[in-house]
């Protein structure tokens, strides 16, 4: 490892020990640049909108609503959407309800490991404003301080139909190129990281989990 690891385009990774720092990539993520020809970008957006894979990661009680979507009654696969077991294979992260600080850390890890294009749907009132856990010592009150949200679904808990409607709307938004959450995250990375580190006090992972 003779390569100079500190430059403007790297992250500090100060939560890791000197040995561990050598094990992780410390490059800064870069925003996605759309295709210069509009028709190509539109086509790409159409393709993205029709290839949504949900990460199977339920954070709170709202994620119960994901189960009926997978099975016969609401059957989300008729829209060409299915669940995936790992972040690397998924493009939609549904934040299923309240987010404790401990879970937030795992959410950040998983989200950063997802490959673009990626989108976040925040389900329920808990990620939006704290919901009924607004006074808990352990759950965050505004999810969009920590990760960018593309679509909110209100309710406690929202019905599966509401989630379906949100996914349909997300598709429309992706088609017109409105879902730039992942880019917002990368462009304002320092702001997001500062917020994340304010609540996650034992930050013992790389600053960006490639």
């Amino acid at each position: 490892m003779s390569k100079d690891r500190s430059s403007k385009n790297t992250m500090e990774n100060s939560g890791l020990s000197a040995d561990e720092q050598l094990l992780f990539c410390n490059a800064r993520p870069e925003p996605y640049k759309p295709y210069s020809i509009k028709a190509v970008e539109d086509f790409a957006n159409w393709a993205r909108a029709n290839s949504l894979w949900i990460l199977a990661f339920g954070t709170g009680c709202c994620s119960i609503e994901l189960r009926p979507l997978m099975t016969a009654r609401f059957d989300i696969s008729r829209f060409g959407i299915a669940g995936r077991p790992t972040p690397r294979q998924s493009s939609v992260f549904i934040i299923g309800g309240y987010v404790s600080v401990k879970t937030l850390k795992r959410i950040i890890r998983s989200y950063e490991q997802m490959q673009g294009p990626k989108f976040i749907i925040a389900l329920g009132s808990c990620p939006a404003n704290g919901g009924m856990y607004f006074d808990s010592y352990n759950t965050i009150n505004q999810f969009d301080l920590y990760l960018p949200v593309d679509m909110y679904v209100t309710g406690c808990m929202p019905r599966p139909e509401a989630l379906l409607a949100a996914i349909m709307e997300l598709k429309e938004d992706i088609k017109v190129g409105n879902c730039d959450g992942a880019n917002r995250y990368v462009e304002n990375l320092d702001w997001y990281k500062a917020n994340q580190k304010k609540v996650i006090k034992n930050w013992d992972m790389p600053d960006y989990n490639w």
Binding site: N129, G130, T139, N141
Partner: peptide
């Protein structure tokens, strides 16, 4: 816990 929550996690305007 309410004070702690508001100080640490903030309060969403409009709630």
């Amino acid at each position: 816990t309410k004070t702690y929550s508001t100080e640490t996690f903030g309060h969403r305007e409009g709630r």
